[in-house]
Amino acid sequence: MIKDMLKLFIENKKAMLGLIILSMFIIVAVFAPLIAPFEPKQREDAAGEFPLRSEPTSKHLLGTTHAGYDILSRLIYGTRLTLLVGMVTGIITTFVALALGLISGYFKGRVDDVISFVNSIFLVIPSLPLIIVVASYITIKGVLPIILVLSLTGWAWGARVIRSQVLSVSEREFVKVAEVLGENPFIIVFREILPNIISLVMATFFTSTLAAIIGEATLEFIGLGNVSAVTWGTMLYWAQNNAALLYNAWWWFLPPGLFIGLLGTSFALMNFAIDEISNPKIRKR
């Protein structure tokens, strides 16, 4: 069953495209030192200091920043943190959402009331202002706080969706059979219910990673992140701060923006594919 799904996933064109884009980014991130012409925080080489605010040249293919950093190199190195923050946040968010969704969906009762209440609060509060408020209260050094902030604000949707799916799966007869057999409730949750919501869990991971990438970029862009870190978000922040838009330095703001969009698209594509695979009504014959 799960094998079948993997096979369908690989056969799906959208999934394949998303997977290809993602793998390219992963390769870029892993081999950044080999691909990038310079270090991200390098301002000079043997030939002397880099020019400031340079337009694209044969040496600096995407020009340089106001501080003289090579933009292409920053873009390539930025992939690392962006991917890391996105995927780690995605994993944490999914894990929290899954745990809460399973507990409140299967055990119901008081536990469910409490979790659902907190969940509703987090759903009602608009997430961006919440992110901003939380982020401005803690001083952000390094990426860990960003991951925590994004995870704290990102789990609610997933938990709600997983809970409702768990509710419906736990009404299925095979769960009742397990109860009649006297099965341990935790085994019911992990053995009977979890395998049946795997596609939803994957979808939650894709959407929350997507949300985290965008959230991270937003935080960095408005300057609430760690502005000295090298990510696509901080690149946009510095570009904006130095009026790149004003003097039309597209090589500065367009590549990071495009990359955020492209990485987001890859997760969105895989998410669509999961939808198609797990919903036979959309599945093509």
Partner: peptide
């Protein structure tokens, strides 16, 4: 809580043969 002693003595067969078996196992 699980009352294994009773459960061993009383079992149930459900109407829907497909629904009563977990498709992933």
């Amino acid at each position: 809580k699980r009352d294994l002693g009773y459960r061993k003595n009383v079992q149930m067969i459900f109407q829907d043969p497909f629904g009563a078996l977990n498709p992933t196992h």
